[in-house]
Design a protein around this nucleic acid. Sequence first.
DNA 1: ACAATTGTACGATTCTATCCGTACTATCAA
DNA 2: TTGATAGTACGGATAGAATCGTACAATTGT
Lengths: 104, 104
Amino acid sequence: MMNDHHPTREDLRLPDILLALGNPIRLAAVKQIALGECICSDFVSGVSKSTMTHHWRVLREAGVIRQRPEGRVIYMSLRQDDLEARFPGLLSAIFCADNGPGTA
Amino acid sequence: MMNDHHPTREDLRLPDILLALGNPIRLAAVKQIALGECICSDFVSGVSKSTMTHHWRVLREAGVIRQRPEGRVIYMSLRQDDLEARFPGLLSAIFCADNGPGTA
DNA sequence: ACAATTGTACGATTCTATCCGTACTATCAA
DNA sequence: TTGATAGTACGGATAGAATCGTACAATTGT
């Protein structure tokens, strides 16, 4: 069973969010989720399934994404409203940016 | 002697910058530097001098700050222009934000 | 009921971060 | 030249992150 703890909006902490996004795999994952709700297996990363489970957990526990189990899949979405409320402009700055060399 | 490598503007990488800022001590340090150029010993963190040296290095190598040795001190400043050029709006989003619980 | 699919849980390993103390270098002032 | 100051370098301890494989659980289709 999925440990489905999501922090409340008030409990979001900026350092945790920056740390969660400060990993190339997670940043890429979040960018993809930002384009539309998706399930775990939509994301191709080169790491194993269990490693991705770990990354999804980090993102969820930092409050970046929401996981919604439905049937045998888990839909993931960006917590855009919560993040915008607490850290205005942060997501758009991150998504608009060119990540830099070696981060394609 | 200080290892004074600073990445060029083009070499800045978003994940590295987010990772560098995703630490409460470094985030606080950067917020203070953003208020004006300062020297290492201006910053009171509760950790030792050598630990702060480590944090300054992480910030410098990520390209967040610039270190300018002068006499026996090192002036530190935010690389605001470079960061704004590469990641528009990122710094202001981070500095305007309320970090959240337990991050006073 | 059975098999396939989707993802988690757990343990192990490896790598990286954080942190400290001590020793050192460089600069400045007396 | 001697001493104080500002910071780095290095080695080591501890803790945390990333990764994998295997085993498991839940759901769905046959």
